[in-house]
Nucleic acid binder design. Structure first.
Lengths: 345, 345
DNA sequence: GCGCAGATTGGAAGCGCTTTCAATGCCGGA
DNA sequence: TCCGGCATTGAAAGCGCTTCCAATCTGCGC
């Protein structure tokens, strides 16, 4: 490090070719003789040369940067397992693909939500965006971003968003359906459902699947009690007592995510109930918390880290032009995980 | 958006000044008459002009980018609460200060750890780095990074790292001491300590504080049983049975973090023990899991999000030259949180 | 052996910004 | 009124890279 970092001109000089040829080699351009390519690569190695990404974007007009946008309350806990796992997967994919990930956490308050996201595109010159719920379903936002010429991939978008942009996710409706059917087979016929925020369409799909299963088995609306939480542990503990204090309480509490299920579990414990004897509980996500609580939670596994990775991969294929047709949705597999908050199957 | 984004020249033209004057205004440079400044600002607003950060770094030589480096196993869960919270705090500070945060997760395998981090500096031109444990204490790594002319702030560094670089953290030794003294006052006199990885010096300090407290109260090494985990829930469940299966088992298990404490709790439950009646348990961090498990965990609170924020603030003051003297350490307050895995105080 | 398409190379012109450094304008003191 | 000195502005020169386009070199068919 005896001075400045080497530049592309240093490489060109050392390998005896023009600067533009080095650029070609570096970018895998066509029409470079193998011998020349090798010579350049050697010079690159000798000098330990690295392209300057800033200069590259300036000249090339592509920042090779994508934004990862998720929602979280400034005062609340840090990003939940769901976001953290998505981010990790996205991060890995970015490293592999040579892109930069700009993490952006947007407060819930939301007056200026859209503004903040647009700034991300304008100020930082992001070429693409990964939108996590509930932004995945903010059609207005999506339109605006697209207008800016920015590619978007949504994580777990609802049906309408899927007509606009690419997305990755599991089949939440089917997952809700499968889980509920299995619960019915287990003998349950009075259900409680702790839903999440309405704005998270993918979580709402779980509820739809749940309802369809009930209907398919001839169980009407009177067989289920539905309450709405906000995906937090606390909302689980808060809602549970009131769902249990009714004439014919449910024999199982189906929760839209694991945190709320953990909350429900805690509330049930607090009432001295036996789980799953007195009340069964199920979650969704298969987050670490599902294995940590006692008894461990029956839940639906979804490959969250993989979702994040796939989202980036899709985004990048859009950016590089490898993908050109209309919006596509990549559906990954989910799976029921039977643990001990439900009777053995 | 009828075409390209406006450039600094557009602003210059519209406001009738030279490009360089616009640049001065934008960067708060001196010697610009208020009237001119206002005129330029107005043009900026009219055009909705945003500086192009890539061009700025190319010309100015400063990337306004800092790296956030943490360690995590590719196969393991996503970043724990600790890292996630640090990241969130750092992210917020970066937004405020106009810097970009480049998150980098480095695998544990570590053959190429150092290499990966250096690439982060060389490839991405990071100006500064935030090092999370265990990198905070990797003196060799720190030296190398400093040689590259890159500023560093360590999160929870040990004593030797503090002589080299800036750092933020709580007084882990005092925290361990305080907690243990309180436990002794509560009547405990046989202790189990589930330590973390040796490479995390800050967690080791908790053990040192623990030992000092024991010594101060005339309790020898025979009064405590020490085992080493890896900060995971699983290591807590694994270690607990063997610590309890001894002639005079401890009456309290002090754990170096909350996840292991949660694991210990689960293992104790599994043996049918009453908590805190048969065995008390304490954690460290005051992570969400501490409130989620049953009974909720007595633990030591540390302001993790704030640590992340402060780390970025320190780093940026170094970068801007606002801070020039030797390495400094910013110590934040910790606090004991009494919940229900220990007897009422 | 000649001519042309395609493969290889290089020259030059910026990308949008900051950084010298030189050119003005202004003030008070002599 | 003239001059030094400072405040204010601008012209020019890049930062390190890519892109466009022209130049040269191949190979092949005839």
């Amino acid at each position: 490090m005896n001075g400045k970092k080497p530049t592309i001109d240093d490489v060109a000089r050392l390998s005896g070719v023009a600067r533009v040829t080095v650029s070609r080699v570096l970018n895998g351009g066509p029409n470079v003789r193998p011998a020349v390519r090798a010579k350049v690569m050697e010079a690159v190695k000798t000098l330990d040369y690295k392209v300057n990404p800033q200069a590259r974007s300036l000249a090339g007009g592509a920042s090779r940067t994508v934004g990862f946008v998720f929602n979280s309350d400034p005062e609340s806990e840090p990003n939940s397992y769901y976001e953290a796992a998505l981010e990790l997967g996205a991060l890995r994919a970015c490293v592999t693909l040579g892109y930069q990930l700009l993490i952006h956490q947007i407060p819930t308050d939301s007056a200026g939500q859209q503004q903040r996201i647009l700034e991300l595109i304008d100020d930082q010159r992001c070429e693409g965006l990964i939108l996590c719920p509930p932004f995945s379903d903010d059609l207005l936002l999506v339109e605006t971003v697209l207008t800016r010429g920015c590619k978007v991939v949504a994580v777990s978008p609802g049906p309408s968003a899927r007509t606009l942009i690419d997305g990755v996710g599991v089949d939440d409706e089917a997952a809700g359906y499968d889980l509920t059917c299995a619960l019915i087979k287990l003998g349950h016929h009075r259900f409680g459902f702790i839903a999440g925020l309405e704005t998270h369409l993918s979580a709402e799909r779980r509820l739809e699947g749940f309802r369809r299963a009930l209907a398919d088995h001839g169980l009407g609306d009177d067989a289920c009690l539905i309450r709405r939480g906000d995906f937090t542990f606390r909302s689980g503990t808060r809602l549970t007592p009131e769902m249990l204090d009714v004439p014919h309480p449910p024999s199982v509490l189906v929760c839209a995510n694991d945190d709320m299920a953990a909350g429900a579990l805690a509330a049930a414990h607090a009432r001295g109930l036996d789980i799953p004897g007195d009340i069964a509980i199920t979650g969704f996500d298969d987050a670490p918390v599902a294995s940590i609580v006692w008894p461990p939670l029956t839940t639906v596994h979804q490959p969250v880290k993989l979702l994040g990775q796939r989202a980036v991969e899709m985004l990048v294929s859009r950016l590089t032009g490898a993908m050109v047709d209309g919006p596509s949705f990549q559906q990954l597999d989910h799976g029921l995980v039977w643990r001990q908050t439900t009777k053995a199957f």
